[in-house]
């Protein structure tokens, strides 16, 4: 993931000829995306904490929203990306593993951001509703989605050939697309059957002024840029790891063979 130092494994794998070229995962495009992410993120942090005014009802806790909403947005974006990349990978019969790596990278980042969204959401819930968790359909569906993708990542980490990994995980990602509407629908039915008087007050609506909306929007842009940056780097890193797994063994054997001859 480093921008300047070459990856030692990558250099060794591809032989001495390419050793001098940087084999990091950065390109000019990702550097630009990285800088843009940093710039927008800095603006969001400054604006969210110091420039925007606290909410009339919620006070300072409204500031959590500037991280929570973009994190949830990126999480859903990531899972849609995973599903689409997995679909393409299946249609192409996993001939190349590029789409599989994008699917995996995107799911990893998605789980991270969904974790962030759940944590920030429950902190906000504690401050506003007085409780960390509420079994409301959207929260429950999100929690199941989170667990589903944690399982997806567990399958990807299994020690199997990249092709097998690609096949199994692509099927899983596509099944998740079937699962989520069913989970959501059943949870909506479930909750509508025993509606209890709860601390959850749906009138907790925030009145957003122009600057607050702009900060929220900047947050979405900043997080999306960060997502793109992370996914590009992560999938390139995975490509190098896969390369190490296949080419690495051959070159190690070759190196040992030369040693034997020299001795």
């Amino acid at each position: 993931m480093s921008d300047t130092t070459p990856t030692p494994h990558g250099a060794a794998l591809l032989g001495a000829g390419t050793a001098r070229r940087s084999l990091g995962t950065a390109t000019p495009a990702t550097r630009i995306i990285g800088l843009l992410t940093l710039a927008t993120m800095t603006w969001v942090v400054v604006s969210a904490f110091f420039i925007t005014s606290p909410d009339v009802v919620q006070g300072d806790s409204v500031r959590i929203m500037y991280a929570h909403v973009p994190a949830a947005w990126v999480a859903y974006l990531a899972f849609v990306t995973t599903a689409i990349a997995s679909g393409i990978s299946v249609v192409r019969r996993h001939r190349t593993l590029g789409f599989d790596r994008v699917a995996g990278a995107s799911a990893e980042v998605g789980v991270l951001f969904m974790g962030l969204a759940l944590v920030t959401g429950s902190l906000w819930g504690r401050l506003t509703w007085g409780t960390f968790w509420q079994w409301d359909p959207r929260l429950t569906t999100t929690l199941f989605l989170f667990i589903t993708y944690v399982g997806y990542l567990a399958v990807r980490r299994i020690d199997a050939s990249p092709e097998r990994r690609a096949k199994r995980s692509a099927v899983l990602a596509l099944l998740a697309v079937l699962e989520i509407p069913l989970v959501h629908f059943s949870v909506v039915l479930w909750r509508s059957l025993h509606q209890e008087a709860s601390v959850l007050n749906p009138d907790g609506d925030v009145r957003l002024d122009g600057l607050m909306l702009f900060t929220l929007f900047s947050g979405v842009v900043a997080f999306t840029l960060g997502f793109v940056w992370l996914v590009i780097h992560r999938q390139r890193l995975q490509a190098l790891v896969d390369l190490q797994g296949t080419v690495g063994l051959d070159s190690a054997i070759a190196a040992r063979a030369t040693e034997a001859v020299l001795r």
Binding site: T148, A154, I158, R168, L172, E179, L182, V183
Partner: peptide, 26 residues
């Protein structure tokens, strides 16, 4: 999905249980 993978015993519950949530509710 987990057949013939190492560690399938612990993977199956993790993968299948969230999917079974609607069934459990219904």
């Amino acid at each position: 999905v987990v057949a013939q993978l190492t560690g399938r015993d612990s993977l199956l519950p993790l993968l299948a249980m969230p999917v079974l949530a609607p069934l459990l509710i219904g």
